[in-house]
Design a protein around this nucleic acid. Structure first.
Length: 940
RNA sequence: GCUGAAGUGGUGGAAUUGGUAGACACGUUGGACUUAAAAUCCAAUGUCCAUUAGGACGUACGGGUUCAAGUCCCGUCUUCAGUACCA
């Protein structure tokens, strides 16, 4: 009987589905384990072999944990709102819901054929009203909350209103807008309802604010930075302008400190934590205000080194700084304007990366030092960016290298305020181990003390204060799109009102076109039935709007990250209609134990989710502070592109070995026409209908009778013809081969190239595995007692595989299996006592073949919950060791010696050995190093 | 520039954390089986020298520590990813 993988795989996939083998139980005595993949967006192109990499890894882990006796939650679903479906809808008029449905079907089929152990009864789709009802609900909760700095958590807005009406807002320490006005209790009560709402909006965790966006009038939409190339839209090349728009924002900045602190409590990679840290960008220092001589204006700067305030010898403003035009003197005007013009042409990235060229211009104006009252020249320089901090720097050349270089270049004095430090060559940027000097009242102090004192003195002058700055900015939450969650919001006199939770969901209205309106309103502006009736509590036709009982609804929709910021809770209780998840389910499953996904979400999804979870914890909706306990980033699988080489000006294609010295143009060809030896299937290429007549008359110049293609590793993409579809792999080699090969390619976290040719290795292994159990005449396995060697092979495999899975080193497990099967085959092992546990070891990796053989061994239940074999070290005890014998560290030969031999005996045996004598050639060794059980090294 | 990760055969990658570098595969070469192909099996395969025995070199490069370094330390270079000169 042969290994008929197609039949076997179909059989067990059907079995798992029919028996709901992987359905997770929310009531269990077993310990829980929650394994989650990052939410996939169901794109129209379907899966390529790079996509399942993380899913295979998490599936192996989930299956392993089941073998280890855990109750495993391993769900899957779709982040099904998104731009591609909308773009397709704009082009074809097809409703995005239909496209999405079709794409999901393809995804599901592809996922099923790989044999994942997902609990599909808990499937979640963000575009399903039963799901986004709860996304809308969370939005309402954010609106109804404020952040109390005193209790350091989010609280219901009613508690804030209570404070306002009893004592005003002067004692409230909240995270809010910068420009809130102060009022007393009496004033609050006297405010109109509208005025009160306006004030509350300045405190709510989601609020309306004017935000600057990249507006593209031709497309009628807002563009992301990377959708803009050279100042015009990437799509169509239309002009883009900066425009202020009223949009919903999320007060994520309230959580900056907790998001930072929380990183210490979770098991994520250092690089990922590092990016989040940098994104949050905490810096402790002071803000300092400088007067400008002969001007009303003040310059505010933020500094992390208030202790160096007496080292300031100039100031630098960003060329874009709004004060530049006001303070520049007549003599300097021309030079300054020219400089600003030149700067405008450089991108921010250019300005950042280029530290070698120093440039800047003096404005002619002077600021006044807060303490010494000395005049400080004000310069502009493009090393200061307008978008960061205040766009102005108090330059301390002796303590900052950039300031130092700038000062040297323009011959600005560099006062030294560090005691006993030589600054003739470079700045002294370290904070520690130095005392301040030449600094009036700061003399003799260290960094810490001087900073404190400087801040105190600045406060006395009213020219500064201690300040902690975060780079993290509030997140814009409105999108001018159709295919997203509608806001549960209507407007009364321009003030936003929440629809009561019991009337949710507010479902997307129908529109005849998915484009913005002619007036530049979002697509929902095209809906005819998009108004809220406060009497019937329902969505009604727009023409009924009377602004007394029927009001206009919000036209924006929510961004992609809305639905994906909390979906991991929904899986815990996906079909609950009364709540986003029951308390019992939330308490049992807590949070995700293992999360696997790409590193591109480092500062988006992974930060927003943490923010929402912290908020939900504050409000008592969930019991956990962090969503993902352990997180692993899988590396990208790259494509191995194939090239043919057209000789310039001809229709001749030269084989790779013939191109040297010739002028050739490399052209991508489809990788499916190339075999494992890099040989091109010329007929296949010529007959490919996609290229029509392109290659029909071409001449292929061969070497040794074949056409060899060139190869190069690139990102997998359709345009490079290097995409490999898992469907074809599953058909030709089977899902188990695909799963094993993806793991075999290399470490999970590392980027690595795909090469279909290599799959024959693991496929051959699975055939060998099969043959170990099944012979020509059926099952070979019997009740024979295992030999010592059999047990040794089995137990060293158990040990290694267990260690590998625990450390996510799946690639090395695969070679361990290969070694085990090679050994057992040569031992002619037929013992069930050895071969049955081996199946359990392999089952997380190759579940179909494991199930089939397991059932052939007479088992009637699925292998999925079979207990993981127990490692017994006694089978690995060796009586002898093959010692490497080294001379001066170089291994010359090996010698088999008993393990229990003493150091002295080893030395005696080795030194008297003929090969040792030959090596030494009469020399007397200076030293003999013996590490029992490891090595012998003879020196001399 | 900065931050992070990484440089090992023709290729993907191993190496129990300082102890036999190149496991396991792919590819290549030779052989067996076959009318032939596929499949399967066997053998060889880091480079160089040598008929063999064996030897020299070898983990990006240059130093260092050590009986012993792919692994630790210092310096340099290269590649990939991310990116924010928050002063």
């Amino acid at each position: 009987m042969n290994y008929l993988f197609n039949e076997i795989e179909a059989k067990w996939q059907k079995y798992w589905a029919e028996n709901q083998t992987f359905k997770a139980d929310s009531n269990s005595d077993k310990p829980k384990y929650y394994v989650l993949d990052m939410f996939p967006y169901p794109s129209g192109a379907g899966l390529h072999v790079g996509h399942p990499l993380g899913y295979i890894a998490s599936d192996i882990y989930a299956r392993y944990k089941r073998h280890k006796g855990f109750n495993v939650l391993h769900p899957q679903g779709y982040d099904s709102f998104g731009l591609p479906a909308e773009q397709y809808a704009i082009q074809t008029g097809q409703h995005p819901a239909i496209t999405t449905e079709t794409n999901i079907k393809t995804y599901r089929r592809q996922l099923d054929q790989i044999g994942f152990s997902f609990d599909w009864s808990r499937e979640v789709r963000t575009s399903d009203p039963n799901y986004y009802k709860w996304t809308q609900w969370i939005f309402i909760q954010l609106f109804e909350s404020w952040y109390n700095n005193d209790t350091n958590k989010a609280e219901e807005i009613s508690s804030l209103i209570n404070i306002f009406s009893s004592e005003g807002n002067t004692n409230v320490d909240a995270v809010c807008d910068d420009d809130v006005e102060m009022f007393s209790a009496a004033e609050w009560q006297a405010f109109s309802s509208e005025k009160q709402q306006e004030i509350l909006l300045q405190y709510r965790l989601t609020y309306l604010a004017e935000t600057e966006v990249n507006w593209c009038p031709a497309l009628g939409t807002v563009l992301a930075n990377d959708e803009i190339v050279n100042g015009v839209s990437e799509r169509g090349g239309h002009p883009v302008v900066r425009k202020k728009m009223t949009q919903w924002s999320m007060r994520i900045s309230a959580y900056a400190e907790r998001l930072l602190q929380g990183l210490d409590t979770i098991d994520w990679t250092d690089s990922l934590k590092e990016s989040q840290k940098n994104w949050i960008g905490k810096s402790v220092g002071a803000s300092v205000t400088f007067h400008v001589n002969n001007h009303e204006e003040l310059i505010e700067v933020f500094t992390t080194r208030p202790d160096t305030i007496f080292g300031v010898s100039f100031m630098t403003l960003a060329p874009e700084h709004e004060l530049v035009s006001k303070i520049t003197t007549a003599e300097q005007k021309e030079a300054v304007e020219a400089y600003i013009k030149a700067t405008a042409k450089r991108s921010e990235r250019e300005r950042m990366a280029d530290v070698k060229t120093i440039s800047g211009v003096f404005t002619g104006a002077y600021a006044e030092h807060p303490f010494s009252k000395e005049p400080i020249p004000i310069w502009i320089g493009d090393y200061v960016l307008a978008g960061y901090g205040t766009g102005a720097v108090m330059a301390v050349p002796c303590g900052d290298q950039r300031d130092y270089d700038f000062a040297k270049y323009f011959q600005i004095p560099i006062p030294n305020i560090f005691e006993g430090v030589d600054i003739s060559e470079e700045a002294y940027a370290a904070k520690e181990n130095v005392k301040i000097t030449n600094s009036d009242f700061l003399n003799g102090m260290n960094y810490k003390k001087a900073s404190k004192r400087a801040i105190y003195e600045l406060e006395q002058l009213g020219q500064g204060e201690g300040k902690t700055n975060y780079r993290l900015r509030d997140a814009v939450f409105s999108r001018q799109r159709y295919w997203g969650e509608p806001f549960p919001v209507y407007y009364v006199n321009g003030m936003p009102q929440m629809i009561e939770a019991k009337h949710l969901p507010i479902t997307l209205p129908e529109v005849e076109k998915y484009l913005p309106t002619e007036e530049g309103e979002p697509p929902l502006g095209r809906a005819d039935v998009w108004a809220w009736c406060t009497e019937t509590n329902s969505v009604v036709a727009n023409n009924k709007i009377n602004d007394t009982t029927i009001f206009p609804l919000e036209l924006n929709t929510m961004p992609g990250w809305a639905g994906s910021s909390w979906y991991f809770f929904r899986y815990m209780d996906a079909n609950n209609e009364l709540n986003f998840a029951s308390e019992e389910a939330l308490n049992y499953w807590e949070n995700v134990d293992l999360y696997i996904g790409g590193s591109e979400h480092a500062t988006g999804h992974l930060l927003y989710s943490r923010f929402w979870v912290k908020f939900m914890k504050d409000r008592g909706f969930v019991g956990v502070e962090e969503p993902f306990k352990k997180l692993i980033n899988q590396g990208m699988i790259l494509g191995t592109s194939a090239f043919i080489y057209r000789e310039e000006g001809t229709n001749n294609y030269l084989s790779e070995g013939l191109i040297e010295g010739k002028k050739v143009a490399p052209i991508h060809v489809k990788v499916q026409y190339v075999n494992a030896s890099d040989e091109l299937d010329i007929e296949g290429l010529k007959n490919d209908s996609e290229f029509g007549e392109d290659y029909k008359d071409a001449t292929f110049v061969l070497e040794d009778g074949v056409y060899k293609v060139g190869r190069e590793v690139e990102k997998m993409s359709k345009s490079k013809y290097n995409v490999v579809n898992p469907d074809a792999i599953c058909e030709q080699y089977g899902a188990d081969s695909l799963r094993m090969y993806e793991m075999f390619l290399g470490p999970l976290e590392q980027a690595k190239p795909w090469n279909t040719a290599g799959i024959t290795g693991v496929h051959g292994f699975l055939k060998k595995l099969w043959k170990l159990y099944v012979g020509e005449d059926g099952l070979k396995v019997n009740d024979a007692a295992p030999t010592k060697d059999n047990l040794k092979t089995l137990h060293k495999t158990i040990k290694k595989v267990e260690e590998d899975i625990e450390s996510f080193s799946f690639n090395t497990s695969v070679s361990t299996f290969m070694i085990a099967v090679n050994e057992l085959a040569s031992q002619k092992c037929t013992s069930k006592e050895v071969l049955e546990p081996l199946l359990v070891l392999i089952s997380p990796y190759a579940p179909h073949i494991a199930e089939e053989l397991y059932s052939q061994l007479g088992n009637t239940t699925s292998i999925a919950t079979a207990a993981f074999p127990k490692f017994d070290a006694s089978h690995l005890v060796e009586s002898s060791k093959n010692y490497p014998i080294s001379f001066n560290g170089k291994m010359r030969f090996t010698l088999e010696l008993p393990m229990d031999m003493s150091k002295e005996e080893i030395e005696k045996t080795v030194m008297s050995h003929e090969k040792t004598i030959a090596q030494l050639q009469g020399r007397e060794p200076k030293k003999v190093i013996i590490v029992p059980g490891k090595i012998v090294n003879i020196v001399g």
